[in-house]
């Protein structure tokens, strides 16, 4: 058998990949079907279909406000993350490259801190008004937690464009640091920025632990509403789940689309260099 030349997948591959796809899709597909099924516990396929759970879901108290809260939290996190991370990554690459290992460590650190531990630490330290258990504290926590998702694409994009040469070229044409960032650097790493932002948006939109533990019921987000309903009403919870999946799918698709769009001019720029 030749390892490199396989024109057809073998049966063990079909079996393994088949099981994998089945396992990955079954829970998701079932939830979609469950959210429109009248009754689905006696037959292989549902006995009937309805949209009434969605109507219930839309009418649920907190539906609008929790969606709004989730959007506020996600967008605020993206914005704070952008302002904090993009200039820092740029600065480290161009001015103080010897500190890059430190930046890498800082960016992997959140992976090593369980979210509950971060929540506990923050709640203990900031136990005074107005920060205590406030949405502002939550944004701080969520920015830390989602930092690696922003850092990786932005850092990859900056590494791909030879930022030092671009900066020198810009400087020799008389641009200051702010003009450089706005006119030269950011337009060239836009793909990375978009990927990072969408990734952070999707992650934070689904965030439950920090929100639940830091602010609790006073700032109800969409995942909190979903968890609440899993215990009250399964059908409505299914409708919420579907909405949540759909937002995640959309974000993933956008990330893929941005990634594929960015690829072409990117490669061209590298070729031209």
């Amino acid at each position: 058998m030749n390892l490199n030349k396989q024109t057809k997948a073998s049966s063990w591959q079909y079996l393994l990949i088949g099981i994998f796809i089945f396992y990955m899709l079954l829970p998701i597909v079932s939830t979609y079907v469950f959210s429109v099924a009248t009754r689905w516990d006696r037959t292989i396929l549902p006995e009937g279909y309805t949209v009434s759970y969605y109507i219930q879901a839309f009418k649920a108290s907190y539906f609008i406000s929790s969606l709004r809260n989730s959007f506020i939290l996600s967008i605020a996190t993206v914005l704070v993350g952008l302002v904090l991370i993009v200039p820092t990554v740029y600065w480290v690459h161009v001015r103080i490259p010897y500190t890059k290992p430190l930046l890498d460590v800082l960016m992997i650190l959140p992976f090593g801190i369980p979210t509950v531990v971060l929540a506990l630490a923050l709640v203990q330290v900031y136990n005074f008004a107005p920060l205590a258990r406030s949405p502002v504290l939550l944004i701080g926590a969520v920015v830390i937690y989602s930092m690696p998702f922003m850092y990786r694409p932005v850092s990859n994009a900056i590494q791909a464009i030879d930022v030092v040469t671009l900066t020198e070229a810009g400087q020799s044409l008389g641009a200051n640091t702010f003009q450089l960032l706005r006119r030269v650097i950011i337009p060239n790493i836009l793909t990375g920025i978009w990927s990072g932002s969408l990734l952070v948006f999707a992650t934070v939109f689904a965030e439950f632990t920090l929100t639940k533990l830091i602010v609790g019921a006073r700032f109800k987000t969409f995942p909190m509403l979903l968890v609440e309903y899993t215990r009250i009403n399964g059908n409505t919870a299914a409708a919420f789940s579907v909405i949540s999946f759909t937002i995640a799918w959309l974000a993933s698709l956008l990330i893929l689309w941005v990634g594929s769009k960015g690829q072409v001019p990117y490669q061209k720029a590298i070729g031209a260099r």
Binding site: S30, T31, F34, A238, S241
Partner: peptide, 24 residues
Amino acid sequence: ALVTLSDVTTNFAGAPLAFAFIVI
């Protein structure tokens, strides 16, 4: 396509995943 599927599903954790398992 399979790598993309992995990419999407690995981020699909938490409450929606838990609920999906309750459904099945």
